[in-house]
Nucleic acid binder design. Sequence first.
DNA 1: GTTAGCATGTAAGGAGTTACATGATTTT
DNA 2: AAAATCATGTAACTCCTTACATGCTAAC
Lengths: 210, 210
Amino acid sequence: MSPRRTRVLELAVLGHLAEAPMHGYELRKRLNRELGAFHAFSYGSLYPCLKEMLRTGLIRQQHTDSARPTGRRSRIVYQLTHQGTERLNQLLADSAPAADDDECFGVHFTMFARTRSEVRLRILNGRRDRMSERLRHLHERVEHVVNQRGDPYTIELNRHHAEFVEREVVWLDELIQRERRCAGQEHPADGNIGTTVPPRQGAPPADRQP
Amino acid sequence: MSPRRTRVLELAVLGHLAEAPMHGYELRKRLNRELGAFHAFSYGSLYPCLKEMLRTGLIRQQHTDSARPTGRRSRIVYQLTHQGTERLNQLLADSAPAADDDECFGVHFTMFARTRSEVRLRILNGRRDRMSERLRHLHERVEHVVNQRGDPYTIELNRHHAEFVEREVVWLDELIQRERRCAGQEHPADGNIGTTVPPRQGAPPADRQP
DNA sequence: GTTAGCATGTAAGGAGTTACATGATTTT
DNA sequence: AAAATCATGTAACTCCTTACATGCTAAC
């Protein structure tokens, strides 16, 4: 019925569940902490998304035998299915959306530690190219406005924006260089996404109560 | 029926029509040129918005006696009504949304030349405060991630973002200082920001055909 | 004679948000 | 007893995009 193929949210959820099984509330907290002021998701989008992903078989509810860990309201802990893992790899490997969309890039970036070095480079390069292109457009526009009749505030806004994009390109260049220097190392952080994630064996669903 | 109270688009349209009557196509071109890569509106949002504004009496169709200027397809030229002017002033005076929403701030900013000095200062100050607050949150988050377990890429993203917000605050501070220096002048548009802007007295409805 | 640009629109849908409803548990 | 926090969820709405449909004129 309603697809609810929530592009970026789906990716973020898959990425986090790949790290460890989790329930919705925890998921949202982490998402919003990691993405910072980049973007904040609400429950109104997260829960329907989880439901849809459940329906399409990307995730499943964990066998909740010993339901509530410390008496709280029973949680629904989700974990990736095989299909979910495949979909995640597929999404991660596709660098095109990350280049265009700021949010999407952010989400991809927060999962770089679990992304193959080659894919990271592809994403960073794609992003760099897009940003350069955007910069070129901006410069053209500034020039145009200056030449024409030029409202000073419009010029200032575009100039300021161009400065930001310039910095973004520099930042990306630095990151690309860093990546290149450690090329070959498939595990710059610890553990990849392509294979299963064994190091997290006995880790409980992230539940620290005092 | 369908309200279509398109917040930011409505403001932008009002602002541009206050400058000169215009038809939809021209409006969109200007919007997207001035806002740069900030945001691009499509016809699919602009035309319904115009229709709704027409319905609610914010704008009206100009008496299109001598319809087509050079044989082209007949245009529908819109102009502000009295209500539209009032609504514009009301929206411009409300600095709260501009502080929060990036797009909204951009639209407000491109209309600063036609905004009262006092309101400009209020908007800039509000924006500055919000950005400072955002910065504080970001620093807290970075610290938290560093202290906890710290994924290096998550830290890097937040650090990078924080740097941007820091620059934005600096930029706003500069603008505020500049505004303060020329306080009293209701129209610092000439030589305020950078380039001088020509008088723009009897500017015709911007229609240059070769 | 066909592409490109000007000009106006509509229908369907995407990707969320807000506000609300509910209920348990812990802290004050 | 009240407020905060944890936890899940829904309905209605927003604001915009994409893709399409139409048609006219200028330029290649």
